[in-house]
Amino acid sequence: MSSTTYDYTLTRVLDAPVENVWAAWTQPEHYARWSGAVLPSISLDVRPGGAWRATMATPDGSEFPLTGTYGEVVENERLEVIMDLPGGESTVMAVGLTADNGKTRIVLSQTCATAEARDMSEQGSGMLLDGLSAYVPTIS
Rank of each mutant, 00 (worst) to 15 (best):
N101L: 09
Q123W: 12
P40V: 01
Y8E: 08
V136D: 06
A51C: 07
D130P: 01
Q123E: 14
L129T: 01
S133N: 12
D7P: 13
D45N: 11
A57S: 06
Y6D: 05
E29V: 00
D15W: 07
E122S: 10
S125F: 01
P65D: 15
C112M: 12
Y70M: 05
N76A: 03
T26M: 04
D7G: 11
L44I: 03
A113H: 13
T26A: 11
D84G: 11
T111E: 15
G126D: 08
D130Q: 03
M120W: 13
M120I: 10
M56D: 00
R118W: 13
R53Q: 15
P137W: 01
S133Q: 14
V107D: 06
N101Y: 09
G50K: 03
G49T: 11
R12M: 08
V21L: 05
V21Q: 00
S2W: 07
M56G: 00
S121G: 12
V95F: 09
L128N: 07
T11P: 08
R105Y: 02
A32L: 05
M1R: 08
G124N: 13
Q27Y: 06
T111D: 12
I42K: 01
G131I: 02
G126W: 02
G102H: 04
R118D: 09
Q123I: 07
F64G: 10
S90C: 06
A115E: 15
L39C: 00
V73F: 00
W52L: 00
S3N: 14
I82G: 07
P59S: 09
L66N: 14
E77F: 14
V46N: 07
Y70C: 04
W34C: 01
R53S: 15
M1E: 08
G50W: 07
A117Y: 12
E75A: 15
G126A: 09
V81C: 04
P28E: 08
G36H: 01
Q27H: 09
D130K: 01
D45A: 06
S90Q: 12
M83I: 07
E89K: 12
S41Y: 09
D60K: 09
E19V: 04
G61A: 11
D84T: 12
G96T: 13
A57G: 01
R47F: 14
E19L: 00
A24F: 03
T104S: 05
A94C: 15
T67Y: 05
Y31Q: 08
N101F: 11
Y31H: 13
D84C: 06
G71I: 09
A23S: 06
A115F: 13
S121Y: 01
G88P: 14
